[in-house]
Amino acid sequence: MAVKLKDLITKERAMRQGHRMCPGCGAPTVVQQALLAVEQPVVVTAATGCLEVSTTIYPYNAWGVPFLHSAFENAGASVSGIEAAYVALKKKGKITKDIKFVAFGGDGGTYDIGLQALSGAAERGHDFTYICYNNQGYMNTGAQRSSATPKGADTSTAPAGKVIPGKIQKPKDLTVIMAAHHIPYVAQTTIHNPMEVIEKVKKAIETPGPAFVNVLAPCVLFWRLEPSLQRDICKLAVETRFWPVYEVIDGEWKLGYKPKKRVPVEEFLKPQGRFRHLLKGETGQAVIEALQKDVDEEWEYVLKRCGETWEPQA
């Protein structure tokens, strides 16, 4: 049944007002939207990161639901432990309610340092939803490159210098890696359209077993983006096919959106200061071309997996 925004007005938010994420940050939008349509009570755990520190500055707590953070690399293990306790205590009759378990991690805590714990949790089949708010870098510590950082981005540990034009490597495809765990639900999405995240996370949470949702969400500070443009930049990410949105449900790939026109990836890069160095000179142009090639190849891969073809308007 389709969810309507109007029906969600009175829903208590899992994350409350007064959190201290930056103005315009995409991460709180992800959290707000993700948990809005979930009907069951949820317990949340998070990897160390912006979301975690900015919502729990002692003695203030922005979570309206039970919340646990213990370290950076272990959100997958933490959600496993909570779910394991729940299963055990429910069996003994000490808990009677149905509760759902959600873990949030940034891309640093998910693609990199927390990948092992997430992989283990997925393999063991705990009933949980892991949501990566992917802002393509270690933003909490000052914009260092991660394995989710796109090629060509200027970061503090892969800076755009006189010789090296920012990050050289392309990001790992974590969504595909998670799909390769053959868990019942995997999705890649972004906050270009609120119903995307609302509905996909609802589906993820209602699916028994592990679910993984990779949500592109801008760090306006270190993407060097106008803070009002969180939705618009995500729209560009989808329109340029830089970030295809799709689901993998029980192994079946399903494309979420096909742009009508072939929009060059440069349109996604332009509003962001982290790519500004690419927009001038031959070296930058070569990086953009390489990035476009990666985008085209990955799009073809997703189309093929989804059994789709794409005929953009001229």
Binding site: V43, N74, A77, V79, S80, G81
Partner: peptide, 18 residues
């Protein structure tokens, strides 16, 4: 679990869960 780090992390999470 898949590591000792996850073992103690899961134990901690389960213990605070009750």
């Amino acid at each position: 679990v898949e590591s000792e780090h996850s073992a103690i992390s899961a134990c901690l999470a389960a213990a605070v869960s009750g």
